[in-house]
Write a protein that binds this DNA or RNA. Structure first.
Lengths: 244, 244
DNA sequence: CGCCGGTTTGACATACTTCAAGAGAAGTGG
DNA sequence: CCACTTCTCTTGAAGTATGTCAAACCGGCG
């Protein structure tokens, strides 16, 4: 678990300033946060937190992509979340988490010691409110994913996954807007996220390529050639995406 | 959407007093809540809230069981949650929900108008904190369910579902402790919860009956004849249940 | 150049679904 | 209280989407 020297960049210049837990904080609250925060970096593939480990800090993802993984005794694994910049890691009020957090690309975190952060929550309603809002958003996302896992076909799963990627990468601008999209996950990891095998993922991805829905420049880079067809393939209501 | 005259029983005598959103409230806060609350009853089968409806109130389940359902355009449905007494319905800060809430047994709710409740959250940290805690618990549960939906076999799904029922019904005491357990859901509804068809649910349930793990007195009432075997069939770590 | 992780592709296996028929319970109305 | 409908559940037989196993391919990197 390698990490760089602990730096404290100015919150005011932070790229996730307006979307992270601290989104609603005023200047004085930011100053308090700046006092207890520290950046940490992880290389692609590094574990960030392990299931059952004592949770000493909570954090915001500043850069990169991390995943939340649950593994059964016999090795079957299910990814239960992907974290993009501005997403929050850790659970105030509990000392352990029940899944592994892994950096799938190079990741930079903005970390807060758990204890001081917890007392901050009690005294700073702006943080508590934002955290509640973010948790409820995650809950909504988790429930959408339950529909995917329980009821969608392999093709619909892939289409939904790709559409989610587009939405999140667009918002982040994390990959240079409008350039080719990037698959941050291997076929195997995608399979673990949508409840399939890597072979089925590969076949469906190539099927969509042949149908002219996706255009790959490389095994990891691609563009959406036909956004309407992609959405149609998700099985979701046409309105669903427009709600936000 | 039928409901009885709006009564306001004393919070101090409320059966869910110590587990609901109001768990941490002091006497004066309870008094405020008593001012804006109203009981409503729903008969088994009644819709409580419909997807997309404007959300005028939020509520705690006082009695009975409700389910959260998502339905795709072609009719496939996935249940994304079961609500037992003390569970919370509705989302402060947003006017709509993205699923249907249905009473599967007779249900009594303790309702609060959304607007006054939202301002209460801002002024009453005890409520905001408890709500955050409950949301995070739900998120944990949703993630566990994602493992079930994405990676477990039909048999493991059934076993996990039954074990969950036991745990929740035990805690509630909602069905007279130690009496026979009750399936609040039809085979069809169970299927929608665990991502199977009703036929597969029926077959697996009868298989467990033949193996002597479950003992049915009736199609809806049963006892756990072999708790260890049940847990073994869930596919979960042996420690998992003891963590709480 | 040759290994090596990730990926593709094919052939085959199977858990679960689908379709279909019938059996119990549980209401409902005469 | 007894037909009659209706709903839920059970059980069987057949079909299929996806998993499993295995081999070959490809692009990067030492």
């Amino acid at each position: 678990m390698r990490f760089t020297a602990k730096m404290r960049p100015k919150c005011s210049e932070c790229p996730i300033r307006h979307r992270a837990v601290c989104a609603r904080c005023d200047d004085s609250e930011l100053t308090t946060l700046e006092g207890i925060k520290a950046y940490r970096s992880f290389a692609a593939g590094d574990p960030i937190l392990r299931r059952g480990d004592p949770l000493t800090y909570v954090a915001s993802v500043v850069r990169g992509v991390a995943t939340l993984n649950k593994t059964m005794e016999d090795g079957r694994t299910q990814m239960v979340g992907m974290l993009f910049p501005s997403d929050f890691i850790g659970r105030p009020g509990r000392a352990k988490i029940d899944f592994d957090v892994v950096a799938v690309t190079d990741v930079t975190l903005c970390c807060f010691q758990r204890k001081p952060f917890e007392s901050l929550i009690e005294t700073t309603p702006h943080i508590a409110q934002r955290l509640l809002e973010m948790s409820l958003d995650e809950l909504d996302a988790a429930r959408d994913w339950m529909v995917l896992l329980g009821r969608k076909t392999a093709r619909e799963k892939i289409a939904t996954f790709v559409e989610m990627l587009v939405r999140r990468q667009d918002i982040e601008g994390s990959a240079g807007t409008d350039g080719p999209l990037i698959l941050p996950l291997t076929r195997d990891e995608i399979a673990d996220y949508i409840g399939l095998t890597l072979e089925t993922v590969s076949r469906q991805l190539n099927a969509m390529k042949k149908e002219g829905i996706l255009r790959f420049t490389d095994r990891r880079r691609f563009e959406i050639a036909d956004l309407a067809a992609l959405h149609l393939a998700t099985g979701d209501d046409s309105e669903d995406t427009l709600v936000y």
